[in-house]
Design a protein around this nucleic acid. Structure first.
Ligand SMILES: [Mn+2]
Ligand SMILES: [Mn+2]
Ligand SMILES: [Zn+2]
Ligand SMILES: [Zn+2]
Lengths: 146, 146
DNA sequence: CGCCTAGTTGAAAACGGATTTCAATTTAAA
DNA sequence: TTTAAATTGAAATCCGTTTTCAACTAGGCG
């Protein structure tokens, strides 16, 4: 999904929810789309502060939750105790490879795994709403440098 | 692994680490093995308090960490913001199906999924140390009662 | 046995990220 | 404009986790 597309989706969301368009919300979305993925609230807050010291942490926090509610962002947890957010690609799902040495995050998607997950869930009578698959290990750079 | 086997493994661990065997540690291990799996620290603490009001939360917390360090327990996070512990089965790994309605947790293991995970990781140059696969949805009881 | 010392305990405090409060401010509908 | 409702940001609060610290063992040694 393009940036302008995402922005209009958020605008629509605000309208339909009876919420207001504000300068802060625009700045935060702008920076969120500009910055790389998997940012914590703190990460984004610090980036925003450099350009505009008038933005509060609470507003960044609340706005990221709005992004998630609206469907333009997804919240993730990679086990370090803080939430991270990434822009949603339309309908596309992916899982993560995480380097436990340097923190590098690689995204992947494997339909065979997804199918097997559904199969296993079915065998246990579960209907799956969402899942989480994270592979933790060493990336190639960190493996060779040991 | 049998209960007595687990207990002696913990005793050995304490010895080799220069730690001491205490009444609290014995009571906590006893109750941990008696109680069902996927207990939070608070869960275990409350169970222990009923029988012995002289056990402190901090001790339960510290002892569960010792169990994990020793290898007789594993810490899990199922997204509700609190750590849970379960007794380790020897060498056996499993993943989880979690009902988002009633909280029921079902364990499963699928070697085909595990293999595909290794394959995917290899394609990205990662060597995997551990992983986490959780399927969230509705169990059969909760599906039909809707 | 008692001593002695390192390890242990539990109440309370500190921690850290997430969330809420609230008075001042801004938005946008009327 | 006027006005009601939403938003903002600093600070307070929440809540599970972890640490502190003085009192209390466990267990090695004589
Ligand atoms: Mn991602
Ligand atoms: Mn389990
Ligand atoms: Zn790495
Ligand atoms: Zn259920």
């Amino acid at each position: 999904m393009g940036k302008s597309n995402t922005k209009s989706k958020f605008k629509d969301f605000l309208l339909t929810q009876g919420l207001k368009s504000t300068n802060q919300r625009e700045l935060i979305l702008e920076e969120f789309l500009r910055a790389g993925s998997h940012l914590s609230t703190e990460d984004l807050y610090l980036r925003l502060r450099m350009k505009n010291p008038r933005i509060g942490y609470a507003t960044v926090h609340r706005t990221l939750k709005l992004f998630a509610e609206c469907g333009i962002a997804e919240q993730r947890h990679f086990g370090d105790g803080q939430a991270r957010y990434e822009a949603s690609a339309q309908d596309e799902h992916h899982d993560h490879l995480i380097c436990i040495s340097c923190g590098k995050i690689v995204e992947f998607e494997d339909s065979r795994i997804e199918e097997l997950q559904m199969e296993v869930a079915g065998e246990h009578g579960f209907s799956i709403e969402r899942h989480r698959l994270e592979l933790y290990g060493y990336c190639s750079s960190c493996s060779t440098s040991i």
